[in-house]
């Protein structure tokens, strides 16, 4: 663990990503304390006000404070990220593990299934699922979770395949350890590294997908402070009040960027560690 942190620390951009992530988490938890205004509170007198000392990022057409809405928006974004990526991680790992460990026709069936899912464009697939399930925050998270399952399934399958041929798996078999135990005790813990990295990367995608789906009106209800919805509404006012769309846009970009560089850093930090262990 120390070794990973040591490697990670050396990567300044990844460190920045981690810092931003921590900041977003703090925002999400402490939103009511940090946000200067109630994100739902409308004020006709203040509508479409540009950035000022009173409203650092201005207000929208209903006079709601953009900064406060962005701060509250981290809650939705993180929630969507955690739950949907959690769904993909669990489902994908399970599929990949079973496919790779049992091989043959089990692998055939599961791999083809994930290939089919994989071949749809992300957003299109999410749209289809949302259309079936109906628009709501829960369904949105389920849809995003399903969309990113194949990536995890593939990564898990690859990792398991390489670990499955390790000598210590043969050793466990030769000692009469059961299949289930081999999967849980030997294969899964050793396949986690690439999956952890994918979690951070998918987190970014999930936030983006939530924004996109909300932008299209398939996500949360329109008055919820979600970055995607803010962006969607802001586009109508681009000419008169650019701040409504630009600030949530910056928030999305920053969050996605942070998770991405953190994931990259994590991957680099985990990699040499694995090399050391095997050589």
């Amino acid at each position: 663990m120390n070794e990973i942190w040591y490697q990670f620390k050396k990567n300044k951009i990844a460190l920045f990503g981690l810092g931003m992530t921590v900041m977003f988490i703090i925002f999400a938890i402490l939103a009511p304390l940090i946000a200067p205004y109630d994100p739902y509170e409308m004020s006709t007198s203040d509508s479409l006000a540009g950035p000022s000392l009173a409203h650092l990022m201005g207000t929208d057409q209903f006079g709601r404070d953009i900064l406060s809405r962005i701060i509250y928006g981290t809650r939705i974004s993180l929630q969507v990220g955690i739950i949907s990526v959690g769904i993909s991680l669990v489902l994908g790992t399970l599929i990949g593990l079973v496919a790779a460990y049992y091989g043959r026709w089990v692998d055939m069936v599961l791999s083809r299934f994930t290939d089919v899912l994989f071949s749809f464009p992300d957003i299109l697939l999410a749209l289809v699922i949302m259309a079936i399930l109906g628009p709501s925050l829960t369904n949105l998270m389920i849809a995003i979770g399903i969309v990113y399952t194949p990536i995890f399934a593939r990564i898990a399958r690859g990792a398991v395949l390489s670990i499955k041929s390790s000598l210590y798996i043969d050793a466990a078999k030769s000692m009469g350890v059961s299949n289930r135990k081999i999967m849980w005790k030997h294969i899964l813990p050793n396949s986690m590294a690439p999956l952890i990295v994918q979690v951070t990367l998918s987190f970014a995608f999930a936030i983006l997908a939530e924004a996109a789906l909300s932008f299209l009106g398939l996500g949360v209800s329109p008055d919820t402070p979600s970055w995607g919805i803010m962006l969607s509404e802001g586009k109508n006012w681009m000419e008169t009040a650019w701040w409504i769309a630009v600030f949530p846009g910056i928030a999305i970009t920053l969050a996605v960027f942070s998770f991405n560089v953190m994931g990259d850093g994590l991957r680099d930090a985990l990699d040499p560690k694995l090399k050391n262990e095997s050589s």
């Binding site: 000598l167 050793a171 050589s279």
Partner: peptide
Amino acid sequence: FQDPYASLNP
């Protein structure tokens, strides 16, 4: 086993 590095679960 041959490879004492690969035959023990790290």
